[in-house]
Amino acid sequence: MTPMPPTAHEKILEVSDVSVTFGRVVAVDGVSLEIHRGEIVGLVGESGSGKSTLGRAILQIVRPARGSIRFGGTELVGIDPEALRRHRRDLQMIFQDPRGSLDPRMRVAAILAEPMVIHGTHDRAARRARVAEVLDIVGLRADVLDRFPHQLSGGQAQRVAIGRALVLDPVLLVADEPISSLDVSIQAQVINLLSDLRAELGIALLFIAHDLAVVRHIADRVAVMYLGGIVELADKRRLFEHPLHPYTRSLQSAVPVPDPKRERTRTRIILEGEIPTPDNPPPGCALSTRCPLRASLGGPDRCTAERPPLRQVHPGHAVACHFAEAADGPAPHR
């Protein structure tokens, strides 16, 4: 029997009980999440769910008020700036708006080489060679090197942003809505590129998105966030075929399917109202004010009295709902 390689199933990121506050607003409220080497985790939620803030907290762009973020064994919360800078090589981020995240006065060649200059990792010749390699990985031709960001299409600009994130050979990429500003046909290019990066380079990815259908194509595991907390976390198959949290079920049922006949027969679980503001969250379960499951159970008091912990209900499947078992059944979109 061949022994498992030492890197497999190695946890590279451990987020434990992290909270991020902005004044009175609790944007992220006690979130725990692990990412393993070479794993793709999808983080899904709507505006105001705290998903982007969590992504930024992992990179220490915003500082958590509480909790621990261990990356490759090092505690990042409260780390001194010099040490953080060394870790940033291994931990990179891709943003939503590719053009807005590229310096408009720099040519592509300089943009791609900049991380190596900042970190002093390569000499001039080695930088040039590495830029050529990365260009090849992200599928761009050498003629883009002399262009400025405004001369690139949206898809090309996002490839450059991905290339810049790859140049220092990171262990983990945090991608915050990397495709939502792109057209459908271009989105597919970027999704495929990101899954190839994992397959070929073994890079782990935290893929933050509002779109469940996109996450389903790329992630191994999926975490669903609502109002600052993770409400469901499961292996992808399990989450899509057997969702248990009422929010996940309603989110799934709300995604339109490009099939007119199915659209006519599907039942949607429409959530009443809107996501409450995080400066005044409801007591107990954050979904209690809108929860269709709670309504169908006659409004049990436990939902407003006690905040449901994220508890394991099945190996590889955790849910933050007191009555998750009552929701058990096939996925609502089937």
Partner: peptide
């Protein structure tokens, strides 16, 4: 191309999306 590049919750998830090349 539009139909094949759009993610679909009801298609098998192993299906690779097919982007439309070019601009």
């Amino acid at each position: 191309g539009l139909l094949r590049s759009a993610p679909n919750l009801e298609k098998p998830d192993a299906l690779r999306l097919t982007p439309i090349p070019g601009l």
